[in-house]
Amino acid sequence: MLADVVLEPEITYTRPAALADTYTHYCPGCTHGVAHKLVAEVIDELGLRERTIGVAPVGCAVFAYNYFNVDFAEAAHGRAPAMATGIKRVLPDQMVFTYQGDGDLASIGLGEITHVAARGENLTVIFVNNAIYGMTGGQMAPTTLPGQKTASSPCGRDVEATGLPLRMAELLAGLPGTAYAVRRSLHNVKEINRAKKAIRTAFQVQQAGLGFALVELLSSCPTNWGLPPLDALKWIEDQMLPYYPLGDYKVADGVEQL
């Protein structure tokens, strides 16, 4: 009988428990939000929500602690890896991750990130590369592309004067303590799915105690690039991908088996 058929609505999506139910302050079209969601999903799927501690950077993600439902600390500019080291050394059973922008990680915090990798610190680092300083209004970052105009390189980045952009995944892959260093992108669904897998692996590396794990995510900054959101995604594909090839730069022994 028809009346007996109860149609259970199939739930196809719920907000991850590790992601707070709140508005974010990110600009329209910025992919920080996507990165947040992926990290939260991974934390949920691995069942880590109640034993994870995040460390927020200084940058647009400074308020990340408002958006994740996990314990969180807020570091000084660039020092998140050192702070995370302190947390992890005292609480080795906690999953500790930092979430950092390119100014934070690759400029002022290059010393800290290099040394956590050199020590093989058991940490997961989510590195959001948007080729610019977002929060302070669009100045040049160490990852700004050659010729890219920013508020502090008004005629375009002059590589004669400022050198070439840093490729952090490659650079950190060169250090012996690094177990996992990969680059992914957030400019389309396929790449977003691949990024999620990598984030998952980076947390599993920490769970298995294999050492330092970094996922670099190419991310958009429509506001400071001066582009509408869709064009900004296209800009990642056309401009950033050639300089920042996606790929796995270090996958240490034992990581494949995870």
């Binding site: 100014g103 302070t136 209004g137 100045q139 508020a151 502090s152 008004p154």
Partner: peptide, 19 residues
């Protein structure tokens, strides 16, 4: 210099004018 609000206009002005 290094960018930081609320002094960033000073750095940005120098980025234009000094060269």
């Amino acid at each position: 210099g290094y960018p930081i609000t609320p002094q960033t206009e000073l750095l940005e002005y120098m980025a234009r004018r000094m060269p």
